[in-house]
Design a protein around this nucleic acid. Structure first.
Lengths: 157, 157
DNA sequence: ACTCTGAGTTCCTTCAAGGAACCCCAAATG
DNA sequence: CATTTGGGGTTCCTTGAAGGAACTCAGAGT
């Protein structure tokens, strides 16, 4: 689907989409995060086509988000999150927060997060890494950074 | 592309993907967030096909993330974020944080965020809404919530 | 009347998602 | 030894979405 290559844009959103922007990828990541690490498990849980799952897993491994590990003498593998992948789960957690608030309806959220540090049910909250105060869409100015120019050497502009 | 309907799953990630999971949607949202509110502006900025842009804008309006407002007597419109849409930008901000860290390379981040509250350049940081301590993939247990069952009335299981 | 501009539609081609069947390998089973 | 089982994929075909260019429409300006 994604014919246009988002990875080449000078935009961290586009680049991130190049890694998990394809259909199913975030759900595959979620499954692996919550402990469904094998091909058939994920395939059955999501109802995804085996062909597409193969592709997605390969793509995520290629981008260093997952690692493929043998777990038997037989050719048996499981997929686990790398550090890069574990940090990508942040994005999923924020998606959960938004979905819980705006899309869950009367039934309430499908899952709850119990925070190890305090033992309580909580949600993620976005804060400024500098001052610790809330940081949302309207709380910031977006300024050009050092990597603002497109990274393609062919483009002179 | 997204033949499978994610919106019917009992999962806030899947439901959120049903709103912004299609290709280009997050980038459209970003453009509107940073002040590119008109059709031709967005089309030119992203290089997206006009047909697909029409579809995406319609979808986002339908889901209450954007509002279409007339800005002239002529049939001229601009798209603005609703409250629901502004909160969805949280997801983009976290994607930016991840992309900046893992994909920006030597050139550094394409954009910087200046936080109004402290005036400094900062990133978003995920914290527990309950205790304020950091909250990431490994800091929580995922428990079934009240909306854990699938919402389809046809399914007895 | 003619042009310009914003905001889409229409139409055609190409490529990805869905789906089902098939294949390979190693171990267990008889 | 032949057969089954089960994980982890491939192959192949059909459908439908993305890309892209051309076309439309409505109102203002000249």
């Amino acid at each position: 689907m994604q014919r246009t290559n988002f990875g080449d844009m000078a935009c961290s959103i586009a680049r991130t989409l190049d890694v998990i922007g394809e259909p199913w990828s975030p759900l595959v990541l979620r499954d692996i995060w919550v402990g469904m690490n094998r091909f058939d498990q994920i395939q059955a849980d999501l109802g995804i086509s085996r062909k597409v799952l193969t592709e997605r897993l390969g793509h995520l491994v290629e981008h260093g988000v997952l690692e493929k590990q043998a777990y038997d003498n037989r050719p048996r593998y499981e997929y686990v999150l790398t550090e890069k992948g574990r940090e990508l789960v942040d994005v999923l957690m924020v998606m959960v927060g938004w979905g819980d608030k705006w899309l869950a309806g009367e039934a309430g959220p499908p899952v709850l997060y119990r925070h190890h540090a305090c033992g309580e049910i909580g949600r993620v909250d976005l804060r400024c890494s500098h001052c610790g105060e809330p940081m949302h869409a309207d709380d910031i100015d977006v300024l050009p950074g050092p990597g603002a120019a497109a990274p393609e050497p062919a483009s002179a502009g």
